[in-house]
């Protein structure tokens, strides 16, 4: 029997709006007791200069019913990004907004594409690294003459790579 607890997850059980807790009964074919708590959950969006999302992804625990809320929170945070972006010439703007227990971190590219990450408490460095790596992907996407700036990014390879980066840095 193996039992897996995630300390972070247990803390989050107290906090989160939705936590999916499943306990598998001991015995039977799955001889383990597993508590799945709200470990890490992220919503990532790339927003164009026209404020429409060019790309969206979720990492970690899926929170389907909150998708619109996530989009709303990110969209609302754009106003703050717009203000803060003139205060610094850096791309990583760190945490720009909070909503309940979610933080919105932002990163703006030289061509004003906004990378927005909705997440629970998380140290800055992995997020910064995630953003920087996504920027590399975004750059190469943009360099393709057939990609029109500020349009949706539909490449499957791009999507796969973003998820790989999320696994590497975030989850």
């Amino acid at each position: 029997m193996s039992t897996k607890f995630l300390k972070e997850g247990i803390d989050n059980v107290q906090i989160g709006m939705d936590c999916h807790r499943e306990m598998l009964q001991p015995g039977g074919s799955h001889d383990s007791m597993l508590i799945v708590v709200m470990a890490a959950s992220f919503y990532f969006a790339i927003v164009g200069t026209n404020d429409s999302p060019l790309y969206e992804a979720e990492f970690g625990i899926q929170r389907e019913e909150n998708k619109y809320l996530q989009q709303f929170v990110v969209h609302a945070a754009l106003d703050l990004v717009d203000d803060v972006q003139f205060m610094t010439s850096g791309c990583y703007l760190k945490a720009v907004d909070r909503y309940n227990d979610w933080t919105v971190s932002a990163y703006v590219t030289p061509s004003n594409a906004r990378f927005m990450l909705l997440h629970e408490a998380k140290p800055e460095d992995p997020i910064r690294s995630f953003f920087a790596a996504c920027h590399e992907l975004y750059l190469r996407t943009l360099l393709n003459p057939f990609y029109e700036a500020n349009t949706s990014i539909l490449s499957q390879a791009f999507d796969a790579k973003v998820h790989t980066l999320a696994k590497k840095y975030l989850i």
Binding site: R140, L143, N144, P145, F146, S155
Partner: peptide
């Protein structure tokens, strides 16, 4: 840097 759209 080029990748063609599938239609192309």
């Amino acid at each position: 840097f080029c990748e063609l759209p599938p239609r192309a």
